[in-house]
Design a protein around this nucleic acid. Structure first.
Lengths: 345, 345
DNA sequence: CTGAAAGCGCTTACAG
DNA sequence: CTGAAAGCGCTTACAG
């Protein structure tokens, strides 16, 4: 690594001022053609490029956004991130990606780091712990000191910002309804998350569907499995001691793992037990049977969130703050882990 | 967003110099306790935090590294990125993530962007096009102007830097050998990548194993499928017109998709056709049958690459450049898509 | 047509 | 114990 060339050095070699060089390189009409030409040529052959950090300091804009997610080893967030990255790059922004590993402390530390002038705005999906403890001061601090925030998927009503969410209530309603219409009556719900707002919404949607179709609720088959519990044991116990003819997995792991456990116990999918999964992984096509799922259009969600954030960053100073909450429509992708509607009527 | 507080403002409110405030906040012994106390207290209650951009300009260090990958919708890169992110954050670095979408042009633009002082170093896995066109000037330019590079997985010998790779040759050899030992004689290779160095290494490892076990080579079942061709048609044609009793998929998609196509055509896996996949996806556990694969320990690869990069960034100026190439050991994860060794002897 | 000055927010060697 | 000065790399309004 040799020394990077600066305006100062160019100015020295031609015995002109830094200001002249700066203007010459911007092809300013203030500068004579002769000077411009020799400076531009020199700069080009010496591969001069302006220092972004100096420009950031000057403009108080970094053209960088931060993204904080609870996990990256989760297809939902990977796809969302992919959408964010695409839009950001199209609009000339870099993205700093941080994984909170669902820890509040990590989230706070990361935000404080980004807050010190590193980014122009922030996209965040809250960590479980943040939602559980309802602690949001770090977010408020960011908004006060650094710039706009757009929350996606795991959001909180306590913070007044733009949000992009999935219609979790209706989504769960739709899934439950589909199972009911294909003849299921004892529909279990399985999740490895708990203290998260979206899970509550999903459960409510599920309960509403049961109510509307006049099916009884069995709380023992609403199975929110805490991290310290053994997933397999919980599912086996449920299958052995409760009536279950369908399982809604609230994330991919819950769905696919429940299906495998049920198969191991001799149940036929979908005839004995139907399976629907929230969030759509490409791999659901390849399981046996392939898994019916709810496509949350996560790439699109990421794109939408990034677009909103960047438009907020670039809006003229003094624009009145109007926050919107965008809801991404979901679609049910029917595959082989649920019975077909045609057969049940 | 209110105005962020600066040293200057603190200096003004106490009628002292900026230098004094700066020193007071660093608890310098040069400053009287009284001054320190009032300044520190004021800074604390007003939530003062130093501007990172200003510090970067001063120190010529950004405590940020760049990561450029061909894709993020690929579990291998997601895991590698996860490893990188962990190590970087542990060591106090932010990471700017950029996806090249296998395009040389995007790769060049991204590197030039990062080169202008944005990052202290770069981790990169080359795009297909870069390898195909053997064009590396942008990488050389980064090394000259910005800092160290560590290449991972898709690397090039033409660039003299640190590298972290998988032992693709031996890896393919091992996979092929395993298939041979379980009784396969007509082993196909399927990939959707072509012009990439790692693919050549894998093919060579495969060929060497055939040679060592004195099996004939059938070039028609070495199937590197170009993007413009239809994957399904290619595989069907191969299965219909060639003798095939095993398939090695060089990436996840090729393996799982080939398996499904073979099953659709009535082949039993693994008795008629065995399947092995390069790179280990968690979902291979859940297919029917579960898929035997090569675990490349991609999280570990990411961690290793990040550690090397950061140690290079932090090494004292003037340290002699010594570049190393680290090879990550792989392991064969036996599942149900290959016959068991026991049965074949 | 060219340059000196002020400034973005900070630090540190040096003077007083 | 405190502050003026120089500097990181750049831009722009202003003077000449």
């Amino acid at each position: 690594m040799k020394q990077r060339i600066t305006l100062k050095q160019i100015a020295n070699t031609f015995n002109v001022s830094i200001a002249t060089v700066s203007k010459a390189l911007k092809d300013s009409h203030e500068i004579s053609n002769a000077t411009k030409l020799k400076i531009q040529e020199y700069a080009y052959t010496h591969n001069y490029r302006p220092n972004s950090i100096a420009l950031s300091l000057l403009n108080k804009k970094t053209k960088t956004i931060g993204v904080i997610m609870p996990s990256i080893l989760n297809p939902f967030f990977v796809k969302t991130f992919s959408g964010i990255e695409q839009v950001a790059n199209d609009k000339g922004y870099n993205v700093i990606a941080i994984v909170s590993h669902s820890k509040l402390e990590k989230e706070i530390a990361s935000i404080h780091m980004l807050e010190n002038g590193l980014v122009d705005g922030l996209l965040i999906s809250l960590s479980e712990e943040t939602e559980a403890k309802q602690q949001f001061n770090h977010l408020k601090s960011f908004i006060d000191n650094a710039g706009p925030i757009v929350m996606f998927d795991r959001v909180s009503d306590s913070i007044n910002t733009d949000k992009v969410i999935v219609d979790d209530f209706n989504c769960a309603y739709k899934a439950t309804e589909h199972l009911i219409k294909t003849g299921c009556k004892h529909i279990a719900v399985v999740s490895t998350l708990d203290n998260v707002g979206i899970i509550k919404l999903r459960i409510n949607g599920y309960l509403k569907a049961l109510e509307d179709y006049k099916l009884p609720v069995n709380k023992k088959i609403i199975n929110l499995i805490k991290p310290r519990y053994d997933f397999e044991t919980e599912i086996k116990t449920m299958l052995d001691y409760q009536d279950v003819d369908a399982i809604i997995g609230l994330e991919e792991f819950s769905a696919v793992e429940s299906m495998v456990i049920a198969q191991d116990r001799g149940y036929n999918i979908p005839d004995d037990i139907s399976i629907i999964s929230f969030t759509s992984s490409d791999f659901f096509k390849y399981t046996k049977p392939s898994i019916t799922c709810i496509n949350q259009h996560s790439v699109f969600m990421g794109k939408t969130a990034a677009e909103i954030l960047i438009s907020k960053i670039e809006q003229p100073l003094g624009t009145e703050d109007v926050f919107e909450t965008k809801t991404i429509k979901t679609t049910l992708v029917e595959r082989k882990s649920t019975k077909s509607l045609a057969n049940s009527y």
